Simulated assay, not measured.
Amino acid sequence: MTRYTPVEERIDALAHRLLSDSSTTGARARLVEFLVFGAKQAWACVFGALLLAVIVAARLWWPDDAALARNDLLVLAAVAIQAGMLLGRLESGRELWVIVLFHVVGTGMELFKTSVGSWSYEDGGVLHIGAVPLFSGFMYAAVGSYMVRVYRLFDLRFARYPLVWLTALVAGAIYVNFFTHHYVFDVRWFLIAAIVVVYARTAMHVRVFRSTFRMPVLLAFLLVALFIWIAENIATAAGAWIYPHQEAGWTLVPLTKLVAWYLLMMISVVLVTFVYPPKPPPQTREVSQSVV
């Protein structure tokens, strides 16, 4: 696996020069690890952060009666961000495939969900399929971008990772349930239980700077789902889309949506394994520190 793109190699070399004299133990060492962790997370989120910033900026400053509809502006901006990521060598061509897959999977779900009234988008523009503006697929692609980038940046390894075919089976059932629960019994709580059973023993090893930290995968799923929920609140407040309960005025997205995002994390992880098969931690004497 290529750990860094060429641009990231240069950033990494600069960081090591700046931090080469930092202490390897004590409070200062822990502070360095914390700051590097934050910097890598921010770098992994760059696609989603830029897209969210454009969504907010378009709501604040783009005229409602402009010749170019706001939705079309967002589509063009999303394409420009994606092109910039590739041309700037911030993302590899290999990663683009999984991001495209996220785009396709997400757009398929958007078409169905808008048709049954789960949420809706602002009217206007020509760059859309049915009631779904094309920028919506890029929001799922942003999740995919984060997932593949964080995999590389932190050199993620997994102890006791479950059988890949089993995880794919659960992920497929989750995706199907996003559609079928509108017509038959909603089995999302059974699917949550299945995720817990499948991943109960799996630990993720995260390489930050000098240290490797160990975290239960189930906790990692929850933390990422929480951050997506926060971003979702910002996006809906900016009018990128609205839920039925927000039609009379914006209100907070219910915390129950965390369940949906938690289930989405399962699908996301399985899609990423198509590009980066999960690898076990190296058999060395290096001690991993637990985050819980």
Rank of each mutant, 00 (worst) to 15 (best):
R70L: 08
A78R: 04
G48Y: 07
A69L: 05
L52E: 09
D64Q: 13
K40H: 06
L60F: 11
L50F: 05
I81L: 07
E33A: 02
V79Y: 01
G48E: 12
W61H: 08
L52T: 15
A39N: 02
A78G: 07
V56Q: 13
Q41N: 08
F37I: 06
A53W: 02
L74W: 04
G38A: 08
V54H: 08
D72Y: 10
F37H: 03
A49W: 12
D72P: 07
V32I: 14
V32Q: 10
L73K: 00
W43A: 15
W43P: 00
V54Y: 12
F37Y: 15
L74G: 00
V54N: 06
D64L: 15
V75I: 01
A57K: 06
W61P: 00
F37N: 10
A66H: 11
V32K: 11
R70T: 07
I55S: 09
A78E: 01
L76P: 02
V56A: 09
V75N: 00
V56D: 05
A78D: 02
L35K: 08
N71D: 11
A53R: 02
V79N: 06
F34N: 04
C45F: 12
C45S: 15
A44L: 02
F37Q: 03
F34R: 06
A78T: 13
F47Q: 11
V75D: 01
W62Q: 02
W62K: 05
L68R: 04
V36A: 08
D64E: 15
L51C: 08
A77G: 13
L74R: 05
A44M: 13
V46E: 11
A80L: 15
R59T: 04
L73W: 10
A77I: 00
A44P: 06
A44V: 07
V46M: 11
A67F: 00
D64P: 02
A66N: 12
D64K: 09
A42S: 12
A78S: 15
L35Q: 12
P63Y: 04
F47L: 09
V54I: 12
D65H: 14
A57I: 09
W62T: 01
V54K: 05
E33C: 06
R70V: 03
N71G: 11
A57V: 10
W61C: 05
R70H: 02
L74P: 01
A44Y: 03
N71Y: 02
L74K: 00
L68M: 11
L35C: 14
L50A: 14
V46C: 15
F47R: 05
V32D: 12
A69G: 09
L52I: 13
W43F: 08
P63V: 09
V56P: 02
A44G: 08
W62P: 02
N71V: 03
A39P: 04
A53F: 14
A69K: 03
W61V: 10
A57M: 13
A49P: 01
V54E: 12
